[in-house]
Amino acid sequence: MTIVPSSLVEQPRLASPPPAGPRKESGWRRRDRRWGYVFVGPQLIGMAIFVLVPFLGSMVLAFASWDGLSELTWVGFDNFISQLQDPLLLRSILNTLLIAAITVPIGLGFSVVIAVALEKLKTRTLYLVLFFAPVVTSTVAVAMIWQQMLRADGVLSSSISKIFGIAPPDWLGDPGLALISVCIVSIWASMGLNVIIFLAGLQNISPSVIEAAKLDGAGALGIFWSIRLPLLSPIIFFSSVIAFISSLQTFDVVFVLTANAGPDNATRTIVYHIYDLGFGRFEFGPSSAAAVILLLLTLVITFIQFGVQKKVVHYEDGAE
C-alpha cells in the first residue's frame, strides 16, 4: 500500500465570495421607507416653513433695516448696538430675569411638595385632573380669568380688603404688584405639568431604598432630604431647564393680563419688546436683533445650568 503525501493530494477549491457591491433592497423595505417619508414629511415641512425659514429670516433682518414695505438696506451691527443701548430692552431683560428667578424656584418647589403629598394618596385621580387642567387650558383664557380676579374690585382684592381691613391692592395698576401678578399666574398655570413629572419620578424610586432608610432610623424629613430629593434631582434639573426657557419666552400672560406691558413697563418682557418693535412700530431690523439677543441669553443661561448640574445633580449610575 502506497502512502501519498497530503501535500500532493489535490485539495478541494472553496467557492470564492461574491464580489462586494451594493445589496439589492427588498421591495417591502422600499415601501416601508416610502411610507416613513410620507408620515414624517408633513412634520418636516411644517418645521421648515414655521421654524427654519423664520429663524433664517430673522438672522438676515437682524443686520438690515426694513419696515415691511420699503427696500431692505444693510446696516451691519447697528441694530445690535442700538438695542443694547435701548433702556426699554434693558428693562425688558431685567423684568424677564426677575420673572424667571421668581417663578422657576417657587413653582418647582411647590410642585415637589404637592407631588410628595399626592404620592401618599391612594385615590389621586381627581387631584391630578384639577392640577393639570390649567396646563391644557388656553393661556389667553387663563389670563383673562385672572385679570378679572386681580382687578381692584375683583374677588381676590375684595377678599384681602375684608380680611385685613385695608384698601384693596391694585394688582395690575401698581408697578410693584403687576410683575408679581404675572409671576403668580405663570406659577399657577405651569404647576400641574411639573407635579405630574415629579410624581412619576417619585414612583420610580425603589421602595427597598426607602425601607432600608426607615430600618436605619431615618425620619420622613430625612428620607425626603437625603434620599428622595437626590434621586429626583435629574428630573428637577430637566424641569428647571424647560421652566427657565419658558420663562424667558413669557408673552401671552403679559399681553392679556396687563395693558401695554403694565404701568411704566413694569411687566415688559423681551418677547413683548420684540413684538412691540416688529408689529407695533414695524421696525423689523431692531426686532430681529432683540430676538437674536434673546437666543444668546437663553443659550448662556442653559450652559450655566448644565455646568451647575454636575455638582448638584445625582445620577444613580454615576453618569453625568
Results as ranks from 00 to 15, higher is better:
T2F: 07
V4H: 09
S6D: 08
L8P: 02
V9I: 14
L14A: 15
S16P: 11
G21V: 07
G21H: 11
P22L: 15
P22N: 11
K24C: 13
E25Q: 15
S26D: 12
G27Q: 12
R30F: 11
R31P: 00
R31S: 09
R33C: 05
G36Q: 10
F39A: 10
L52T: 08
L56T: 04
G57Q: 13
M59P: 01
V60R: 14
L61T: 04
F63H: 09
S65Q: 14
G68Q: 06
D86C: 12
L88T: 07
L89M: 10
L89K: 08
L90C: 01
L90K: 09
I93M: 11
L94R: 14
A100G: 09
I102W: 07
I102G: 05
I102Q: 06
I102P: 03
T103R: 09
F110M: 13
V112W: 00
V116H: 06
L121C: 03
T123F: 14
L130S: 15
L130F: 09
A133S: 12
V135P: 08
V136Y: 11
A143P: 01
M144Y: 02
Q147L: 04
Q148P: 00
M149K: 03
R151A: 07
V155W: 13
K162R: 09
G165K: 12
L172A: 10
G173D: 10
L177Q: 05
L177D: 00
L177I: 03
A178I: 04
S181Q: 07
S181E: 03
V182I: 15
C183D: 04
I184M: 08
V185L: 14
S186P: 06
S186D: 14
I187T: 06
G201I: 01
G201R: 00
Q203H: 13
S206F: 00
P207L: 03
G217F: 06
A218N: 03
G219Q: 01
G222H: 08
F224C: 05
I227L: 15
L232M: 10
I236L: 15
F238L: 12
F244K: 02
F255R: 09
F255L: 14
L257F: 09
T258D: 06
G262L: 07
D264L: 14
T267C: 12
Y272Q: 08
F279Y: 13
F284M: 12
T298V: 07
L299C: 13
I301F: 09
V313L: 06
D317G: 04
A319W: 02
